[in-house]
Amino acid sequence: MFSKGIGIIAIVVLVVVGIFAASAFFVVDETKQVVITQLGKPVGDAIKDAGLHFKIPLIQKANYFEKRVMKWDGSPNQIPTKDKKYIWVDTTARWRIKDPLLFLKRVGSTSTALSRLDGIIDSVVRDRVSNNNLEELVRSEGWEEARQKLMEAGLPDLQFLGAFRQTEGDKLIKGREKITREMVADASRLVPEFGIELLDIRIKRINYVESVQEKVFERMISERKRIASQYRSEGEGERAATLGQMDRELAKITSEAFRTSQELRGKADAQATAIYAEAFGKDIEFYEFYRTLDFYKNFNNPKSSFVLTTDADIFKYLKNSAGTSGE
């Protein structure tokens, strides 16, 4: 009976020690940091080193907080820009608990922190967006260089749009990076009192609101139509140019051919004339006679009738064999 009593006591002691040990030791993961509170009051510095740690059992409590960088994701806001363009802005931010003691005191939990950040970041974003033109929010550092590079590459469609014309409004004043840095700077002034460090705010998405988007689509369509008609008229112009060139060449070819052939013919005629003149000039009277006879010989019209008088040479023997005239 005595040994049994000893055994029971031993077991009880073991269990109690176990409970003590379990509540005295606590494990801190690499991803966590801990604030010890004693009856609700924070004690000592925050524990940021991972490993096995000790606290007074039962009256001290380990409050775990995330040590890693966390993400804040805002819901998209409809905000007008400075140039009165309505856009949806979707932002995201990264933050971490820098001072867990303060965080525990002022905020308490991650979900509360996120809702605090909602308020702060939303208002900062709203301020900055409505203080800047849309171009500033879309473009960022290097816009001018990017355009320069593009000009060198040469895109024909862009030349039609006159995109390379430098205009005053195209100068980038700030750009997206600078604006988001300003957002971070503004928000960072407000968050330290919560024990939070804000690492960045990023504009994840910017889109036109539905009604503006339709207008933008219309503009895009009209721009494209402009480019298309430019191409068409270029085509027509090229065609006209080619056809004009063709007409010119045709005129040149035919007229040159005409000239050459006329020259050739003229030379030949002249040569022939010279030959004739030289030969026929020897006896002009005989030439006339000869040619006239040639004409008679070669005359060929079977339907023709001729009336001759008996005075013709051929009929000189018709009335008498002496060939003398009747008179």
Binding site: Y296, F306, L308, A312
Partner: peptide, 19 residues
């Protein structure tokens, strides 16, 4: 000769007195 050739190639030849 020429007149003979000529005559072969025409329809008719009418000869009238010169007066």
């Amino acid at each position: 000769e020429a007149f003979a050739d000529f005559n072969n190639k025409i329809d008719r030849l009418i000869v009238i007195d010169g007066s």
